[in-house]
Design a protein around this nucleic acid. Sequence first.
RNA 1: GGCGCCAUAGCCAAGUGGUAAGGCAGAGGUCUGCAAAACCUCGAUUCGCCAGUUCGAAUCUGGCUGGCGCCUCCA
Length: 479
Amino acid sequence: MTIRLYNTLSGKKEVLETIEPNKVRFYACGPTVYNLFHVGNGRMFVVFDTVRRYLEYRGYEVRFVQNFTDVDDRIINRANELGENVRDVANRYIEEYFRDADALGIKPATVHPRATECIPEIIAFIADLIRLGHAYEREGDVYFDTSSFAEYGKLSHQSLDEMQAGFRITVLEHKDDPTDFALWKSAKPGEEYWESPWGPGRPGWHIECSVMNAKYLGEEIDIHAGGRDLVFPHHENEIAQSESRFGHTFARYWLHNGTLNINGEKMSKSLGNFIMTRDLLEERSAAAVRFFLLSAQYRHPLNYTQDAMEQAEQSVVRIGRSLRNLAHRREVLLEGPSFARGDEGVRNEVQAEFDGVRKMFVDAMDDDFNTADAIAAVFEAVRLANTYLAEDQVRESELNGWESLISELLSVLGIQLSNDVTPQSTARSEDEEIESLIAARNQARKARDFKRADEIRDELSARGITIEDTAQGTRWFRS
RNA sequence: GGCGCCAUAGCCAAGUGGUAAGGCAGAGGUCUGCAAAACCUCGAUUCGCCAGUUCGAAUCUGGCUGGCGCCUCCA
């Protein structure tokens, strides 16, 4: 069993072969912290969080690094707009990132470096590039000389000639060539700056990622991930910088997720057609949002619509009901006569079903993290579990088996189903009353006084209590 | 202008040469006093359109149409 992943560099699916056995060095580009992140950004975080979880599930020790770009024109502009200090703005949005990421079930990376924490290393890296003849200084700015890197364009599959032909407006500044890009930008009056051999200034955008990779993961890494829109120029430039500096392969596998679209267009801050993740979470469950974001293969575009979100919500409800029914059945079982608790282990045919579902899931995820197929495996487990629940005799070990299997798969996808949100204190005091109403209703049903039974059900329903009569008794829950 | 991607049922979405997964919504059935939950069955003779290759194509090739992304900040 091997994991295959689509590598943007080769344009093919390749077998994952890591630098060190059972260890993955994984870098994903993080946000520029000048605002909250929108659902499109959220897709990227969720997708690669899921890749990371899956690699861990498959036994890899994953060292996952995700940076914060906390030096950027946009942050400076934002700070000016707000009349605040640049550092304060950046720090605040880093905190806000963690808040929303946590709400979406995105695990913190192993390391979350910030560009401002790596300034000395960035300066040293740039100095090395100049020394090696890959960069030049012009009036306090430093540029990377793309013509010095023969393989420039290999990630985006374009030649330098093609790129130059594509430049509509040539903004040369001090650059020798339009495809050259800034490594170091001299500070404009009033801007935050760091001292450097080229005068006061700040790092360009691309250099921080090259530096952080080297600093936290080493000169060569296994997986580098980001959104499709980072392929060019950002990742192309990272490759140019790192490979020019170290003289060998930078990242083995380049993973890029498709855009999240809305009304057929890419959701982006510059187009202004975005929905903040935080706002979406006000009206939708995190589980549904995450389900939606994983409902398509990560490389494909995904269109955001109300309808699709509603469908995701319903799908998640179906899974949740199955888990709820498994838990209820176990509760009844444990309360029942002791012979019903007999636990002789899991029957072979049920074990075979567990194995079948798990294989379906792993096969799907092994094939370039096909979460759409993986979700189908979850539904297969749900269907089989529900079928098992319809049996007259069930065993605790098997109920537990279904529950833990479904939970196991959901946790790899990072989908956490919210439990009853009613505060415990309120819940407990109310429980007794509900139980007695249900008992009264069952008395009425026994006496075939269905009018009275339905009245009680309506009353409970009005209080937000849904009841379901099963062969094992009546179960209820807050809706 | 250059590079690249996509087009599968009402909706979402897998499937890259062997005869169309899964989910949502819908219809019918079973169970139930009823309801709910659940299970079963039904739904694309067909995969944007037109040619071609092949014993065989949603899957490969060419053309066309429609849509998107990148080439400028962007996950």
